[in-house]
Amino acid sequence: MDRLELTELTALLRACAGEGEGIDLNGDVLDTPFLDLGYDSLALLQVTGIIERDHDVTLDEEALDEAETPRQYLDLVNGALSARTTA
């Protein structure tokens, strides 16, 4: 089943919006708020666009806007991906 893992999300963040100094994206950042990781809403918008494109899925941008951590974001994305699979 098509799933988005944390490593893929952090790779996308790094590629789309760069990496701040003093932040280890390879660490346990699942529950670290995006703002603490240095990523703003535009960085996430960029990432969301690429996920939609590469996974051929339409995501609820308003719901994703509420996601404050990678865990919350991944849950929403994977929910949409599995809904698509079962549909």
Partner: peptide, 8 residues
Amino acid sequence: VSGRLLPQ
């Protein structure tokens, strides 16, 4: 320019 600013 910081790595964070390069993509934008």
